[in-house]
Amino acid sequence: MNSYLIVASIIFSIGTLGVIIRKNLIVVFMSLELMFNSANLGFVAVSNHLHLISGDIFVIFVIVVAAAEAAIALGIAITFYREKGTIDIDKANELKN
């Protein structure tokens, strides 16, 4: 179980770094999905190790929620593209003090 959790943590860190560093909106959304799915991997590993079913159930819910989030994310991305003509995250700079 430990090694699975280490792999999950590494994937989670890659996702975190992707969200922080990358400037392309689609890549940021992909990184967010990566973070969610690393948690899924952790849940499946733990629930297999402990011979429990509850972790697997959690994973199904997470997949559903991630799909809903992706729908919202792409909706927002399309609106953003229509208004700015780009999906560069640095162009989201109108709200300032």
């Binding site: 999950a8 975190t16 969200v19 967010l32 952790g42 994310a73």
Partner: peptide
Amino acid sequence: ILGAFASAFLLFGSVFIYA
């Protein structure tokens, strides 16, 4: 982006609590 980022942290925290 930040809200989903936070939810991912929360979710990954629950993995460790569950583990």
